[in-house]
Design a protein around this nucleic acid. Sequence first.
DNA 1: GTCTTTGCAAAAACTTTGCATGCGG
DNA 2: CCGCATGCAAAGTTTTTGCAAAGAC
Lengths: 155, 155
Amino acid sequence: MTPSQDIDALKASFADFLKRKKYRSTQERFLVLDRIAELDRHFSADELYIHMNSRGDRISRATIYSTLDLLTQCSILMKHRFHGESATFELSSRMPNHDHLICVECGRILEFREEGIDSIRDAVCSQLGFRPVTHSLQIFATCHDPLTCEYNKQD
Amino acid sequence: MTPSQDIDALKASFADFLKRKKYRSTQERFLVLDRIAELDRHFSADELYIHMNSRGDRISRATIYSTLDLLTQCSILMKHRFHGESATFELSSRMPNHDHLICVECGRILEFREEGIDSIRDAVCSQLGFRPVTHSLQIFATCHDPLTCEYNKQD
DNA sequence: GTCTTTGCAAAAACTTTGCATGCGG
DNA sequence: CCGCATGCAAAGTTTTTGCAAAGAC
């Protein structure tokens, strides 16, 4: 999905951010970015930690958390907080400008694109005197067919 | 802000939900709803626990968490997960259909209303075969004037 | 060489669970 | 009175922090 050629662009962008903020360019920070590109899906900090260590990288949770925070600061990563879960991350470039629909019955997460949201975001920001960085729209909904949902206590 | 006459409507709606789901109508559950209406703002589970106990109510965290979950299930409460924070709740009726803009520099949270979001939500749901329950739009942005933001490491 | 970053483990923050007691139906 | 709900404390999760050692500049 993400063409591998994009990874170099992400690394360049990350390197630029680190330099601007006077943070150091360490091997671990770029290794984390590599492995995230490899995963190419939603993931939690701990899932990434397990992925990397089972793959042979020796890296600590502290470094993972710290690097995820840096990557989120510079918008390479998008950080989501869906209900009841630990934080979920994904590459912003993986599927630009998409949002999420969460089934409140079974917890499924669907991705969708809706062009109109960007203009709403920009309008709100200019009205309140802010410069938009990013957004996260979460729609909570139930299946029309309750049989496909597992945890419906009512039926 | 929330007229106190609304509290009875909320209680009736909660009672109805409990009956439908065959949950018991306990004093604690309605007391929690009373105190939430009293707060009339965003709050975390622990803030409510402290509010109630410093007010003289003797209630446990377990009951708070359990009741907040019930109140969220029946849409009386809205549960938000902003970045890096514990879950934040608020009465849905407090300011219907509003969303949040979060300043990524200083963490301020502003509330706003934007009518267009509802139609986007409904369109997405009908397209994907879901029935909308609620939504949460979080816009992350920076102040135009960086001086009003505190944590900007760059300057 | 200096000073940030890392790894490790311990701690903190937040939430859930187990069990005995209490109260709603 | 039966059985779910509560209170308490303990355990579970997720994330952060302190400190010594390693690595970036």
